[in-house]
Simulated assay, not measured.
Amino acid sequence: MPEISPPTAPPQNAHSALDDAQGIAYGSLMAALSIVVLTHLGFVTGQTAGIALLISYTTGWDWAPVFFVVNLPFYWVGWKRFGPLFVAKSLFAVTLTSALAAVLPHYIAFSTLSPALGAILIGALTGAGLIALFRHGASLGGIGIVGLYIQDATGFRAGWVQMLVDAAIFGAALFLLDPVAVGWSFLGAVVANLTIAINHRRDRYIV
């Protein structure tokens, strides 16, 4: 059975609709919190969130709508391989994450946050959020969908796929942002992707 594809006959321990709703809500909240920390520190991240951040930094546009639009072309891959339910869940997750990332800065402020701790927090929040989404048949779109597609087809873990793509995005960020900030940002991405690669394993978690 594909790792996140709904089986023809759901097993007894399959997630309920309520399980999926809370899992996607939790994952979206963690991802949105990581974006709040990222933008506060002026960091960048990988995947489509990182692409949206670079566009936001260079144009002044808000991250949330840019992130939503950047993800749109990738839903075709999700629809083709994982079906409409996966796309619907992912679209909901992306929309909720975008909305929360736009609202949360009005309720959260940081007087002191070191770059090192911020990078670790970003990685931990992102990793926890993505694992929750993956385990409930969703993704934050973009590279996450492609990573899951490759993992399902070849066994090459989604976390490693994302790490390779992240490296390319960070290389581009070096031309746009302070290299020190990019270095701290890369630490956050490493923490996030190692969290996913170690904890989100097909042989340990199926439904």
Rank of each mutant, 00 (worst) to 15 (best):
P2R: 12
P2S: 14
P2E: 12
E3M: 12
P7G: 03
P10Q: 07
Q12K: 15
N13S: 15
A14C: 10
A14V: 08
G23Y: 10
I24A: 02
S28T: 04
S28G: 12
L29D: 07
A31L: 14
A32T: 06
A32Q: 10
V37E: 07
T39M: 15
H40A: 04
L41Y: 05
V44F: 07
Q47E: 15
T48H: 09
A49M: 10
I51K: 05
I51L: 15
A52L: 05
L53W: 02
L53E: 02
L54P: 00
L54F: 06
G60Q: 05
G60R: 03
A64Q: 12
A64C: 07
F67R: 07
F68D: 04
F74W: 11
G78V: 03
W79E: 09
R81S: 12
R81V: 14
F82A: 07
G83T: 07
P84T: 14
S90K: 02
F92P: 06
F92K: 10
A93Q: 02
T97Y: 01
H106N: 13
I108F: 02
I108N: 00
F110M: 04
F110W: 01
S111V: 14
A116G: 12
A119V: 05
I120G: 06
L121T: 09
L121Q: 07
L121Y: 09
G127Y: 01
G127A: 13
G127F: 00
G129Q: 02
L130S: 04
I131H: 06
F134S: 08
G142D: 09
I143V: 15
I143S: 14
G144Q: 13
G144D: 15
I145A: 10
I145N: 11
Y149C: 09
I150Y: 00
G155P: 09
W160V: 11
W160L: 13
V161R: 04
V161P: 05
Q162N: 14
M163A: 13
L164M: 14
L164R: 02
A168D: 06
F170H: 01
G171L: 10
A173N: 00
L177R: 11
V180N: 11
V180L: 14
V180T: 15
A181H: 15
G183D: 10
W184P: 00
W184K: 06
F186Q: 02
V190T: 11
A192D: 01
N193Y: 00
L194S: 10
T195S: 12
I196R: 03
N199E: 12
H200F: 14
D203C: 06
I206P: 05
V207M: 13
